[in-house]
Simulated assay, not measured.
Amino acid sequence: NRGGRGFACNSLLCPCHLQAPVNSSCQGLTCVFKGYSTTGLAQRSLFNLQIYGVLGLFWTVNWVLALGQCVLAGAFASFYWAFHKPRDIPTFPLSSAFIRTLRYHTGSLAFGALILTLVQIARVILEYIDHKLRGSQNPVARCIICCFKCCLWCLEKFIKFLNRNAYIMIAIYGKNFCVSAKNAFMLLMRNVLRVVVLDKVTDLLLFFGKLLVVGGVGVLSFFFFSGRIKGTFENPDLNYYWLPIMTSIMGAYVIASGFFSVFGMCVDTLFLCFLEDLERNDGSQQRPYYMPKGLMKILGKKNEAPTGAKNRKK
C-alpha cells in the first residue's frame, strides 16, 4: 500500500485469492519478502552443511580410489604368491579381489581415506586463508602461509605413499590399516635404497610412456584435422582445428594416466611382494622363493630341489 492507494492483484500467489476472485482488487495489500537464509534450522546451518558436503565429497573420492588400489593389489598379489604359475592363479583374480575387499577391508580403506581427507581439507582451508590475505602487504604472514602450504603438500604426498603401500599389505595379509601401514613402512625402510631406485626408474618410464602416447595422438590429430592426411575417409573441413586437437590431447592424457596408474600399481605390488619374499624365504624346501624363475636368475637366487629329484639326478 503506497500512499493509501491499492493496486490490482492478478497473481495466484497472492493470499487474497483465498477469499476473493481472481480479477478483484486487494485493498491494503502489503508485500513481505522472507529471506530463506535466515529462518529455519537448515538455513542457519547452511555453512556447516556445505563443510559436511565438501568433506563427504573428498572422503568418497578417496575411498573409491583406495578401493581400486586395494583390488588391483589383491589381483597382482595373487599372481605373485602362486607357487606354480599359472596353475595356482585364481580363475578370476580381479573379481575375487573385489569381493574380498568389499567384504573384509571396507573399514580399513575408509579409515585411510579419512586421514587423507583431513589433510586435504586442511589444505583447502589454508588456500582460502591465503586467498583472503593476498591483498595484505605483510611479508611475514605471507612467508608463514607459504611454509604451511609446503608442509601440508609434503604431508599429503607422504600419506598417499603410505596409504598406497598399506593397501597392498592389506590385500596380502588382510590385517587392519594401522598394522599394515606400520609393516609396509618398516619393510620399505629396511630396503630404502631399492625403493628409491625403483621409484625413480618407474616414474621415468611412466613419464616417457605418457609422453609417447600423448605426443603420438597429438601429431596424428594435427595431421588429421588439418587435412594433411588423405585417404578413403572424409577429412573434416574446419576453420579452427586447434580446439579438437587440444581436446584429443587432453583425452589421450586422461586415458594414458589411467592406464599407466594400473601399471604403476602392478609394479609397486610386485615390488613389495618381492621384498617380503626375500625376508620370509631363503630358497630351502621348507621356505622356497615365490618369485618367478627369471627374477631368481637375475638376483642369483634358486630354490633347492626336492629330495626325490636329487636322488633321481644321482
Results as ranks from 00 to 15, higher is better:
residue 92 F to Q: 06
residue 79 F to I: 04
residue 71 V to Q: 02
residue 120 Q to V: 03
residue 95 S to H: 05
residue 82 A to D: 06
residue 101 T to I: 04
residue 123 R to L: 13
residue 123 R to T: 11
residue 113 A to F: 07
residue 116 L to D: 10
residue 107 G to A: 13
residue 98 F to T: 04
residue 80 Y to G: 01
residue 117 T to A: 12
residue 126 L to C: 09
residue 118 L to F: 14
residue 126 L to F: 06
residue 108 S to D: 14
residue 85 K to Q: 13
residue 74 G to Y: 04
residue 70 C to G: 05
residue 129 I to Y: 07
residue 108 S to P: 00
residue 94 L to G: 03
residue 91 T to P: 01
residue 95 S to W: 11
residue 107 G to Q: 09
residue 102 L to A: 06
residue 80 Y to E: 01
residue 86 P to F: 04
residue 126 L to Y: 04
residue 70 C to S: 11
residue 79 F to G: 01
residue 79 F to C: 03
residue 88 D to C: 04
residue 83 F to A: 06
residue 115 I to T: 08
residue 130 D to E: 13
residue 111 F to S: 09
residue 112 G to C: 06
residue 91 T to S: 11
residue 81 W to Y: 14
residue 75 A to Q: 08
residue 115 I to D: 01
residue 82 A to I: 06
residue 116 L to G: 09
residue 116 L to V: 06
residue 75 A to P: 06
residue 72 L to H: 03
residue 81 W to I: 00
residue 94 L to K: 01
residue 126 L to W: 06
residue 86 P to K: 02
residue 118 L to G: 12
residue 119 V to R: 02
residue 90 P to H: 04
residue 105 H to Q: 14
residue 119 V to A: 15
residue 125 I to C: 11
residue 90 P to I: 02
residue 112 G to W: 02
residue 89 I to A: 01
residue 76 F to T: 00
residue 104 Y to D: 08
residue 128 Y to H: 10
residue 84 H to F: 09
residue 74 G to T: 03
residue 86 P to Y: 07
residue 98 F to S: 06
residue 116 L to R: 11
residue 79 F to T: 00
residue 114 L to F: 15
residue 71 V to N: 02
residue 123 R to S: 14
residue 92 F to G: 01
residue 72 L to Q: 09
residue 119 V to L: 15
residue 103 R to D: 09
